[in-house]
Design a protein around this nucleic acid. Structure first.
Lengths: 177, 177
DNA sequence: ATCAGCATGTAAGGCGTTACATGATTCA
DNA sequence: TGAATCATGTAACGCCTTACATGCTGAT
């Protein structure tokens, strides 16, 4: 069974743009990426260690004063691994919508509960939508730079799907009333 | 840390409609539910055993001839657990789009690779869309029955979001060309 | 002085996938 | 006769989350 851990590719991808510490990587993931992928320290630090052993990244001590700080840089081998993954056409897109699960079995608790669950979902989407639009707007003026085009496209993916969610919420609420 | 295993709720939800074997449960999950939740035998059978110990379901031997067959039925306690979960307003909706991850880091391998990845995604969505529309159409004529309304709503969620995906694919391809 | 943020990491445990193991029945 | 489907389960392994443990720095 081949290695499957995708966090390695997230890290490699981020390091392909700039050198970062584990802490920085976490912050990046919590930004524009968090809409379609997550990561945690308990996830990131062990991956960093493994990848260094494999020669995909190298570390350097960038401590300032008494504060420990380790900055990682991607190697040529790491770039190759990243590129190989990008060129592999198969991609697993996994969704786990607990909201839809609850709706599917909505008959057990009745319409009021189903409506409430949809409303909670709607509120959360609206909150996230504001953030997504912020990302997109910031990127719009710099689409000439190729990297920004890619970031922009992932943001518009989020916006389009979130708009679809909100449209569906309206329709679903109407059908339940 | 409270129990988090959602497969229990999927099973309880399915059993709230009809008695089923583990094998049946797997087939149900692979049907209309598979768009937003997955399950495997290695997942389902142990859950079934645990839930029986907890009194949420009861089993009965329904073997036919030499073929082993265990049918499960939900208990009042199970119904209560299901209802409690439905009424709990918090729901985790987690997405892991490897396609978007690849797009986000598209700069490393270039536009051709990014385009190819979008095209593969698009083809898969088109395939699944046909199935979703099939489900929705079959349900449309029976929306008077409350349960079917819920099933229908989850199907339309899928259709609306998949349509958004396809629109985005068109736009993204155009921007990359 | 205290709190938020910077910074690294480990440990326990849960959850899930995949592969394996076994065997019956039905249908072509 | 052989393949697909029905049917139950276990074992190994991998991945991730959560909580814990520790300590520095800068701002209020």
């Amino acid at each position: 069974m081949a290695r499957e851990r995708k966090i390695d590719m997230v890290i490699l991808g981020l390091l392909s743009h700039e050198d970062l510490t584990g802490y920085d990587i976490k912050k990046r993931i919590d930004g524009a990426i968090s809409f379609f992928w997550k990561g945690s320290f308990g996830n990131i630090y062990p991956a960093l260690k493994d990848m260094e052993d494999q020669g995909l990244i190298v570390k350097s001590d960038t401590s300032v004063g008494g504060r420990e700080r380790i900055t990682y840089r991607i190697t040529d081998q790491g770039r190759e691994a990243l590129s190989g993954w990008l060129k592999d056409e198969q991609a697993s897109n996994e969704l786990r919508y607990e909201t839809l699960l609850k709706l599917f079995f909505g008959g057990v608790a009745g319409k009021e509960v189903a409506l409430k669950n949809i409303e909670v979902f709607e509120e959360n989407i609206k909150k996230d939508m504001a953030m997504l639009k912020g990302f997109a707007k910031a990127l719009e003026s710099r689409l000439g730079e190729e990297d920004h085009l890619y970031f922009y496209l992932t943001a518009t993916f989020g916006i389009e799907t979130y708009e679809a969610y909100l449209r569906w919420c309206m329709g679903a609420k109407k059908m339940l009333k």
